[in-house]
Amino acid sequence: MRWLSMVLILVVAFGAAGCASKFKNYYGPKVTHVVVYKEQRKMHLLHHNTVLKSYDIDLGFAPEGHKQFEGDGRTPEGQYWIDRRNPNSAFYLSIGISYPNADDRAYAKSQGKSPGGDIFIHGQPELFKAGKDDWTAGCISVTNREMRDIYAMVKNGTQVWIYP
């Protein structure tokens, strides 16, 4: 009987551990838009005019100015949309920003260059060393704990405003 109790305890313990997940549920007000202030290194999730959550952020390794070309290390500025999700990101979890838009593509083409792409709001890689500021290739980064909340709260189609 004692042996059976120990087995049952182990099964329950392993079962509970298997339920741990990086995916959360969110039942609060809808996030209607995301606002990023690059200079202040802040990102806000809003329901209309009400700030639901605010986060400190890291940006591209060349944070000043609007992203124009592939590899420039800048984070875009302007109006975009959340257009995709990556639950298997190398940066924990990520949600895609619709950069480049038509204007971004046209400008880069006029200069004979690629505008780049793959701009995300994401967490941190597994072996991330704390204290590195503005380390991304143009993305917006938060902690993995914060990214779990953002991934649950922000849906595809959400408007994103990125200001200098």
Rank of each mutant, 00 (worst) to 15 (best):
73 G>I: 09
114 S>N: 12
137 A>P: 04
90 A>D: 14
60 G>V: 13
101 N>W: 10
91 F>L: 11
101 N>S: 13
38 K>R: 09
66 H>W: 03
155 K>W: 08
1 M>F: 14
161 W>S: 07
108 A>F: 00
94 S>W: 06
108 A>S: 01
75 T>G: 03
4 L>N: 04
7 V>F: 10
10 L>P: 03
122 H>C: 01
26 Y>N: 12
28 G>F: 15
40 Q>Y: 11
135 W>E: 15
100 P>S: 01
60 G>S: 07
128 F>H: 15
160 V>L: 01
130 A>I: 08
92 Y>Q: 12
140 I>W: 03
127 L>M: 11
106 A>C: 00
131 G>P: 05
64 E>L: 08
73 G>Y: 08
56 D>V: 02
82 I>T: 04
94 S>R: 06
61 F>H: 11
94 S>T: 07
59 L>T: 05
72 D>H: 05
127 L>C: 06
49 N>E: 13
24 K>S: 13
71 G>N: 11
70 E>Y: 12
162 I>F: 05
154 V>S: 05
153 M>G: 10
20 A>N: 03
82 I>Q: 03
65 G>F: 02
79 Q>M: 09
22 K>M: 10
119 I>T: 05
93 L>A: 05
62 A>N: 15
59 L>C: 08
8 L>R: 10
47 H>T: 14
15 G>I: 00
121 I>D: 11
160 V>E: 03
125 P>G: 11
96 G>M: 01
125 P>N: 15
77 E>G: 01
132 K>F: 10
154 V>A: 05
53 K>G: 07
67 K>I: 08
37 Y>M: 00
112 G>M: 07
25 N>S: 15
128 F>I: 11
121 I>C: 08
140 I>E: 01
138 G>S: 00
82 I>E: 04
11 V>G: 10
79 Q>K: 11
38 K>S: 10
151 Y>I: 09
102 A>C: 02
134 D>E: 01
145 R>I: 07
15 G>N: 00
89 S>M: 00
35 V>D: 00
44 H>Q: 12
92 Y>L: 13
117 G>H: 00
29 P>T: 14
163 Y>M: 13
142 V>Q: 06
113 K>P: 03
44 H>E: 15
102 A>I: 05
157 G>L: 04
47 H>M: 08
125 P>M: 14
163 Y>C: 07
161 W>D: 09
156 N>I: 15
19 C>R: 08
65 G>S: 01
6 M>L: 15
78 G>W: 02
147 M>A: 05
81 W>I: 08
164 P>H: 14
63 P>V: 06
162 I>D: 02
123 G>K: 06
14 F>V: 15
105 R>A: 14
87 P>M: 13
3 W>G: 07
4 L>R: 10
52 L>C: 10
23 F>V: 11
108 A>N: 01
93 L>T: 04
31 V>E: 03
44 H>S: 09
106 A>E: 04
33 H>M: 00
89 S>D: 03
3 W>D: 13
107 Y>I: 09
